[in-house]
Structure formats: C-alpha cells, structure tokens
Design a protein around this nucleic acid. Structure first.
Length: 394
DNA sequence: TTAGGGTTATTT
DNA sequence: AAATAACCCTAA
C-alpha cells in the first residue's frame, strides 16, 4: 500500500473543515476497508471524524452507537477508557429516551426502542463479553425496562436531560482519542520541516553577521532525518505558534528552505514508490515507450508518473480538488504532463552586477556568492548563478 | 555543490 | 530553423 495514499487520506479525514470529504467514502474508494491490519490508525481517524461530524450536526443516534462499537473493535484487546464506556452508555440511553415523546410508555415507540437497543443490540455485546457493558449501562437498562411498565419511572426519566450528558461524554471521548493519535503524518512532517528550516535560517544569518572569512568547510551538521514523531510532538505547539507570528521576516529565505525540504521529502517518497514502478515497466505491452534507448531515458520516464494511469492496479482514486500547483517538481520529469517549472524571470542588471563581483571575489563558488548577497540573489539558486555565468560567457 | 547535458519558451 | 535565456536533471 502506498505510503502517500495513507498520509493524504489521513490528512483529509482529519481535516474537519472539509465537509466534502466523507471518511466512509474516501476509505472505501481507496479500498482501505479490507486490510484492517496496517492502517488501523486510519480507520480510527475515520470513525472519530464521523462521530465528530454527527456531533456537529447535533446528531446523537443509533449510528453513533455503531461507530462506538467499531471503535471498540479497533482497540482490539486493549482496555477501554472510561469515557468510551460512558459515551456508549449515555448515547444508548439518549437513543431510547428520545422516543419518550408521548406522555405514557404504552403509546409511541418507546417499547420498540428498548427492545431494539437494549435487548438486541446490547444483547450481542453481552454475548461477546464486550467491555462496553459497564455497570452504569446495566443500571440504566434496569431503569429503562422498568419505565416500560411503570409510568412514574417513565415520567422521571423523560424529564431528565440525558442528551447533554451524552454529548459531553462523546466530546470527552473524542478529545482523548485524538490526543492518543497525535498529530497526523503530513502535519508532523510539515512541523519537522519548519523546525529544520528555522535552524538553517538562524545558522545562515549568524554566519553573515560574523562576516566569516575562513575556509568554506564549517561544521554544519545535518541531523534531521532521523527524528520522527517524538521531536515533532514536543515542539509542536511552540512551532505552530511561531509559524503564525513570524510570517514576514523569513519570507524569501525561509520559504525557499521549506520548499527545498519539501522537495527532499517528496524524493524520499518517490524512492519508496520506485520499486513498484520499475516492476510495472518490465511488463510487456507498455505503449508509451517511444524511444527504446538504454538506461537513463527509459528509467526516468518510467518513474515520472506516466504509470499512474496504468490499469495494472485496479484501485480507484478519489477525485479530490487539485491543490495549488507546486513550483518544485521532483516527481514529474521531461515528457510528462505540463512540467511545473518556476516562472521564467529575467536577470536584473543588479543581479548580474552582483554575480560579476562575486565571481571576481570568490571564483566559481556559487554557494558563497549567494551567501554573500542573500538579498539580491534571494530568488536565484546556486545552479541559477552557474547557468547565468555560463550564459554570460557565451 | 558543481559541471555539464538537456528542456522549454521566446525571439530572431 | 536556429539562437538565446532561463530553468531542470543528474553524476560525481
């Protein structure tokens, strides 16, 4: 299963502000329903999201009970939290009590509800020894059954505000469960990137302030890749805060750093996907090999995403709105669909002058030239400098 | 990071 | 069609 699919699915499922994405549809479209094993966190997210959606709509119904039971199954074995039990209990009660609209138990659907929910549904739970059957639940069952016969008890229960308790417990459950899941994968990566880029920017400015003049080999250590969730989790809140406050100062430098990080990150993903792509290449019947040249060309077009539409994998991709096009494009290459390129921008006389000075001073150390003139050359990479110099020499 | 081969888009 | 400028990709 593709890592990227999971991450994106997770992101969309968790994004509460996107009413167009229904977790159920998304997961079944991606065929995640069957393979429970390796993506239970995805399913858990989806269930939590559905509970949350129905709460927002003011819906506490028997569908919520289904969700809570599914959630229990996803925990497989581990001990249920109190809030889970309470939420289930009070939701079940609410589902029954909402049918107490007539003045007497003998009228209306109350009796049916008790039968359906407490005899059948909860009966099944009892049979399989579910942890959801709490003492609280059993107490309520007794009361509700009594109410079928006894109009006094019926009236008393009818006037209590069960719904409020149910909503409170459900909210409590959601809060706890989301906390257990932690931040979602894409967010963690984004946070990690931000951290790294901030460190890099700090380092960069410090170097400039010192007006360094030694050899180019300073000890810049690159220890980023091997710090997954843990570090991100701890620094999370601080980073998010900083992200919002500090949007102006590091606009060009910082954003470019982040873009580069993102590029590395995408390359990493590409590497994960590569094996399957090369396997597909070996299959006969690939119409789009126009030039059967040896190694390089064939390989690169192969990895370039051409294969995405190959029917060899019959997985339906959901049609989600296309996000903003990325200017940095490691995944697409030569002949693939409209390649995302940076917008062509001519060199200003000032930039050229700075480049000329730089070459005079540092020689062909494009990196140093750029570091010496971060403002003027903010929009140029080292490679751009090299290319421009090549053009100037022609 | 850099050098060098290659592509894209625009102009001549 | 050739030339040019800016940009992209990859080996080392």
């Amino acid at each position: 299963m593709k890592v990227m699919d999971k991450w994106v699915a997770e992101f969309f499922i968790r994004c509460q502000k996107n009413p167009r994405v229904s977790p159920t549809n998304l997961l079944s479209a991606l065929k995640f329903r069957e393979s429970a094993g390796d993506c239970s966190y995805l399913k858990k997210s989806s269930v939590l999201r559905e509970i949350s959606d129905s709460l927002i709509r003011g819906n506490v119904a028997e569908g919520t009970l289904d969700l809570l039971e599914t959630l229990e199954k996803l925990h497989r074995g581990s001990v249920l939290t109190e809030s889970h039990k309470f939420a289930y209990c009070w939701t079940a009660v609410e589902c029954t009590v909402r049918l107490m609209w007539p003045l007497s138990a003998s009228e209306g659907l109350y009796g049916d509800a008790v039968e359906r929910i407490w005899t059948k549904r909860i009966g099944v739970l009892k049979e399989r020894g579910s942890g959801l059957v709490s003492e609280e639940l059993l107490k309520w069952e007794a009361d509700l059954r009594k109410a079928v016969e006894d109009d006094e008890v019926y009236k008393r229960i009818r006037e209590s505000n069960v719904r409020y308790s149910a909503v409170c417990f459900l909210n409590q459950l959601l809060k706890e469960q989301w906390a257990v899941l932690g931040s979602c994968s894409l967010e963690s990566v984004a946070q990690r990137m931000l951290l790294k880029s901030r460190k890099a920017v700090d380092k960069g400015t410090r170097r400039l302030d010192e007006g360094e003049k030694e050899n180019g080999e300073d000890n810049r250590d690159v220890h980023g890749v091997e710090c997954p969730q843990h570090a991100a989790g701890e620094e999370e809140e601080r980073t998010m805060g900083v992200q919002e406050q500090e949007h102006e100062p590091s606009l060009d430098e910082g954003d470019k750093m982040v873009a580069r990080e993102l590029k590395d990150f995408l390359l990493e993903i590409q590497r994960q996907m590569d094996p399957s792509f090369t396997r597909q290449l070996q299959e006969p019947n690939n119409a789009n090999i126009t030039t059967p040249q040896p190694s390089r060309r064939v390989n690169s077009t192969g990895t370039s995403g051409q294969q995405q539409d190959s029917a060899s994998e019959n997985r339906v991709r959901p049609h989600l709105p296309t996000p903003e096009p990325l200017n940095v494009s490691p995944l697409k290459k030569k002949r693939a669909n409209p390649v995302a390129r940076r917008i062509k921008k001519f060199w200003t006389p000032e930039e050229v002058a700075v480049l000329r000075e730089g070459v005079k001073e540092y020689g062909k150390s494009w990196k140093e030239i750029k570091n010496a003139n971060p403002e003027v050359l903010a929009e140029r990479t080292e490679v751009d400098l090299k290319d421009k110099w090549r053009n100037l020499l022609r």
